[in-house]
Computed example of a mutant assay.
Amino acid sequence: MPAAGRTPYDGVVIATPVTIPYARYSIESAQWWIGRALKALLQESPLRAADIDGLAVSSFTLYPDTAIGLTQHYGLCVRWLETIPLGGVSGIAALRRAARAVQAGDARAVACIAGDTNHVDTFRKTLEAFSQANQDAIYPYGAGGANASFALIARHYMRTYGVSREDLAKIAVSQRENALKNPHALFKRSLTIEEYLAARPIVDPIHLFDCVMPCAGAEAFLVLDSDFAASRGISGARLLSTIERHNAFSEDPSQLRGGWAMDVDELYTMAGIGPEGIDVVQTYDDYPFVTMMQFEDLGFCRKGEGVEFVRKHDLTIGGSFPHNTSGGQLSVGQAGAAGGYLGLTEGLRQVLGCAGSTQVPDTKTALVSGFGMINYDRGLSSGAAIMAGVPT
């Protein structure tokens, strides 16, 4: 453990959260969306392209390019480079790797960017090639990608812990209320519990408003050496702790928990705070039941108590447990791999006090989680980070 008063990520700051407004469909390429995000990072900070000496990129639709090809496209000359193909965990993984690169002196200014396009046929093509398990066991039977697999997990989770669709409705409805304050959210109309419950089934027990809407967009942030950031007048957030785990609890016949449960004690010990010290929470919300699972696995309640936790708390921006204050993917949209960055950019805005209409007053700490890379019967990847504003 670090010496008293220090954290494992001393010398690192996170800055300049960027969102490129989403579009339901786009004829532009993933390269175009990622390029816009890079341009915004430079416009919203005092840095020049020559100052960026590290690059981490995540995208499902960038093929045949990877991060290396983008360096030439964008005129960058970097000494540290990562292509991170981890879906909903891409943001956490990029943050962790970039922070360690900065600490090691391999880079001092890393641009972390995720972006995807969404042509009319993009989603179908992505499903076709998502994984070998998907090609062999899901897509040939006409199942539309992740929905069928997550329906099996959702049914098992709901039956095991007595979760009803009414309980999950509160999560989706609360996020829609938050999204109405976010100008970037694609969903502009309120959602009622009655509308949620009456929505058409997709794959039982998953219904329409349990699913994210594919779209095009990009998210980005900077990971900087703190001395370098100070020399350029950049105010950033502190990274208190992170965890990352892949293929956790493989002995479970069907997924009831994610890798967070394996490492949650380390997450809080590293940060020097407990769940009660978190002001806002941004979970990865590809489905509401996954969010409830994370409330348990991230230590806000015991396993199986997610139902009571949701019933007892107000999850809106002004509530007792501000959660997915941007509206999350369920109401903002899922711009491919950028969905794994959405919580990070929103959490960063919250602790920096620049979230605007979605700002939770007096936010000092934020917990952000990631989840993804569904194979046939479980999401394989999970991660989380705790960040804090600069003490005043």
Rank of each mutant, 00 (worst) to 15 (best):
V360G: 08
R349G: 14
S357P: 06
G356V: 07
T365G: 09
L330D: 07
M373K: 11
A337R: 06
D362T: 03
V351C: 01
F371E: 10
V351T: 02
A338C: 06
L367M: 15
L348Y: 02
A335C: 09
L352A: 02
G372D: 05
G347A: 07
E346G: 00
T365C: 00
C354G: 03
G343W: 09
Y341P: 02
D377V: 05
G333R: 01
T345L: 02
V360I: 13
S326R: 12
Y341M: 10
L348S: 01
A355T: 01
G336N: 08
Y376I: 13
I374W: 01
S357L: 12
Q359N: 10
G353S: 09
Y376L: 15
S326G: 14
L330H: 08
G370V: 10
I374Y: 02
Q359K: 08
Q359Y: 13
T358E: 14
Q329I: 15
Q359A: 15
Q359P: 08
A338Y: 06
A337N: 11
P361R: 13
G327M: 04
Y341F: 15
G353M: 08
T345M: 04
Q334L: 14
C354K: 06
V360K: 08
G347S: 07
D362F: 06
T345C: 11
L342S: 13
L348K: 02
P361G: 12
G336H: 11
Q359M: 14
Y341L: 13
C354N: 11
Q334V: 15
G370M: 06
A338F: 08
A338I: 10
K364T: 06
S331L: 14
G347N: 05
T365R: 06
M373S: 09
I374M: 11
A335L: 09
A335T: 05
Q359S: 13
Y376G: 12
T363F: 10
Q350E: 09
T365L: 00
E346W: 00
R378H: 08
E346S: 04
A338V: 07
D362L: 12
G328L: 09
V360C: 15
V360H: 06
G333C: 04
A338T: 05
Q350A: 07
G372E: 02
T358N: 11
T365K: 01
G372C: 03
D362E: 14
A366D: 01
G353I: 07
V332A: 12
A355M: 04
T358W: 10
M373D: 09
L330Y: 10
G347T: 11
Q329T: 14
G340A: 02
E346H: 00
G336F: 10
G336D: 05
D362V: 03
R349V: 00
G340W: 03
G328N: 04
G333E: 07
L344F: 05
N375Q: 15
D377C: 05
A366W: 08
R349P: 00
G356N: 07
G339A: 14
K364N: 05
T365D: 05
V351K: 00
T345G: 08
T345F: 05
